[in-house]
Structures are given as structure tokens and as C-alpha cells.
Design a protein around this nucleic acid. Structure first.
Length: 311
DNA sequence: AGCCAGGCTCTCG
DNA sequence: CGAGAGCATGGC
């Protein structure tokens, strides 16, 4: 096995550490899709039927960011390094203009403190819409800890394993694989009957071509949400979540999200829990950047920064 | 033990 | 329209 490398220069400011931590939080667990250990971000992706391990580490700083990307695996070719670099740019959203975001919303004193603590955090993305969708459906309603356990089983049972230095990394299973797993296979992962049906329905649509998920990148926000919500199992929360997580839309805003409602209530409300409508109204304060605000609030929540910010 | 989790569909008024 | 039941499972 050999490896090839490529350099990648993100737009400044860019915090490799914060961005990778957030990625790992979204898809992590006992077995993770995006892993971040010892300063190395790793992810298994397929190219022409070859499962390759793509990794990145930082060789710069937040203000002078520079990443070294590596691609490793069977039958890897020099040309794969550029391909891997393109994926890291997508996954870690390395060319997002964070400075413009800070200018636009930094005037808000409460939010300003969050931005300062998370300077350079970029809104990382899922590799595909399909992946974001399946993971979102798994995460619907259930506690985050339970979702992590189910994700781990999904990867271990149906993912594409790549072994390196005694560790195993998993690529996300394709629609055909999950389709073959069937209802029984998915239920064994502790998914409800309905969630299994939702996921299989999506796999079927992807397989037959009636559901073009990856083509949604070129559509407007309204078009994407409109089409997604028509799919069984996808409601407003999932559609907005996928819009932000996979398509990188900075204005995606899952107003129905319980954790988001609680967080906004804590920071801006009177402690009373916010309704979905009130949450959506509040999102308009940050028109155009609501999704990025959500990224920052959830990161602050995970890192337990809200207590000190509130005080 | 019972209630709730980073929702959605279906049913019923 | 809006409201309510049911879903699976692990934590508290």
C-alpha cells in the first residue's frame, strides 16, 4: 500500500481542530464515519470501486491555514491525491467565507461571545445527500446517544471497511447495500419498522432514479425542501438538516429542532420553551446565515460554552 | 418505573 | 388547518 499527498489552503480564518471536532460529533460514536484522532481527520471514500482512506492534518494555524491531505489504499494512484483534496475541501468546507459571517452577525453581543470562542469553525458537510438523509432519519426523535450506537452498528455491519495500522475505518454503505439488507436487516440495528421503511424507500428511489438526491445541489433552497418533504419519512426538520449538512446551505434552519429551541430560549428567551414558529421568527435575525448560527450554537452546546457565555 | 430524546406519519375533529 | 397517538431504544 502506498500513499499520495496534496496540499490544501483553506480560506482564512479556518480552525482545523474545531471543524474536525464538530464533524466527529455529527457522525461519530463507538464506530465513526468521520474520525478525528491525534490531530488527523480520516474518512473512507470510494472512487471507481476502490475504497480509499482520505486523511488530513493541519500544518498551519487558524489565520494561516494549511492542510496536508493524504490518500491511502489498494491500487491508489497519484491522481487520487487531487481527488482526495477536493473531498476534504467539500467535507470541511474550507472555502467558506467565515469573515463575512462574523461581520454580518457579530454585532449581537450574545452571539458575538460564541463566535469569539469558536473562531474559525467551519460548517462541515456530509459526503453525500444520501448519507446525510439516512443519518438524519436514524437520528429523528431518539436521544443523541442512542443515535450514535445505531450509527456505529450500521457502519460495522454494512459499511465499507478499510484496515490500516490495526485500526478499521468504515465508508458509508451505498443504497444497494441497504436495499439488500432489507427491513429485517435494518430492524436488527434497532431501528423502528417505520424508519426501516423510510430508509428503504429512499434507497429504492435512488436506485431506480426517481429520487435524484445528489442533483439537488443545483436547486434553490425552496426547491430542495419542497422535493425532500414529499418523500415519506422526510419532514421539515430532516429537510432543513440535510440542506445544511449535505448541501452546505448557510441559511438552512431546522426550527423544529428541540435542542435548538431550548438553546435559543436559554440565550434569548425568558426560559419558557420556544415553539417552532417562535424559533423560526428568531432565525430571521440572522437572515442568510441562520444555518451557520445553528452550527455555532450546537458546537457551543457540545463544548459546554453556554454557561460561561450566559453569565 | 416512567418519561423523554436534535420527528414523522396517520388519524380525527 | 391543529391536536394527539404511536413508534424503538437507552439514560436519567
Amino acid at each position: 500500500m502506498t500513499a499520495y499527498h496534496a496540499e490544501l489552503i483553506p480560506r482564512s480564518p479556518f480552525s482545523f481542530d474545531l471543524t474536525c471536532q464538530a464533524m466527529a460529533a455529527h457522525t461519530g460514536g463507538p464506530v465513526a464515519l468521520d474520525t478525528y484522532e491525534g490531530g488527523v481527520f480520516r474518512r473512507v471514500l470510494s472512487r471507481d470501486g476502490r475504497a480509499l482512506l482520505v486523511s488530513a492534518r493541519s500544518e498551519g494555524s487558524v489565520d494561516r491555514p494549511r492542510l496536508m491531505v493524504e490518500v491511502w489504499g489498494d491500487a491508489v494512484e497519484p491522481d487520487d491525491a487531487k481527488w482526495a483534496s477536493g473531498w476534504i475541501r467539500h467535507l470541511l468546507a474550507t472555502d467558506e467565507d467565515l469573515a463575512a459571517f462574523y461581520d454580518a452577525v457579530g454585532g449581537d453581543p450574545t452571539l458575538g461571545k460564541v463566535l469569539a470562542r469558536l473562531h474559525g469553525l467551519s460548517p462541515g458537510r456530509a459526503a453525500t445527500v444520501f448519507e446525510a438523509l439516512v443519518l438524519s432519519i436514524i437520528g429523528q426523535q431518539i436521544a443523541a446517544t442512542v443515535a450514535r450506537l445505531i450509527r456505529a452498528d450500521l457502519l460495522q455491519v454494512y459499511g465499507t471497511p478499510v484496515r490500516r495500522d490495526g485500526a478499521t475505518y468504515y465508508g458509508f454503505p451505498g443504497a444497494e447495500t441497504l436495499l439488500a439488507a432489507g427491513t429485517d436487516g435494518l430492524r436488527k440495528l434497532r431501528l423502528s419498522q417505520r424508519k426501516a421503511e423510510y430508509i428503504l424507500g429512499i434507497c429504492e428511489g435512488v436506485g431506480t432514479g426517481t429520487l435524484d438526491l445528489e442533483g439537488m445541489a443545483s436547486l434553490t433552497r425552496e426547491e430542495v425542501v419542497g422535493r425532500l418533504v414529499r418523500v415519506r419519512g422526510i419532514g421539515p426538520w430532516t429537510a432543513e438538516w440535510v440542506l445544511g449538512r449535505a448541501l452546505g446551505r448557510l441559511d438552512a434552519f431546522p426550527a423544529g429542532d428541540l435542542a435548538l429551541q431550548r438553546t435559543l430560549s436559554r440565550l434569548y428567551g425568558d426560559g419558557r420553551s420556544l415553539s417552532e414558529r417562535e424559533t423560526a421568527d428568531m432565525g430571521r435575525r440572522w437572515e442568510g446565515y441562520q444555518g451557520l448560527v445553528v452550527t455555532y450554537l450546537f458546537a457551543a452546546l457540545r463544548l459546554r460554552l453556554l454557561d460561561e457565555i450566559q453569565a
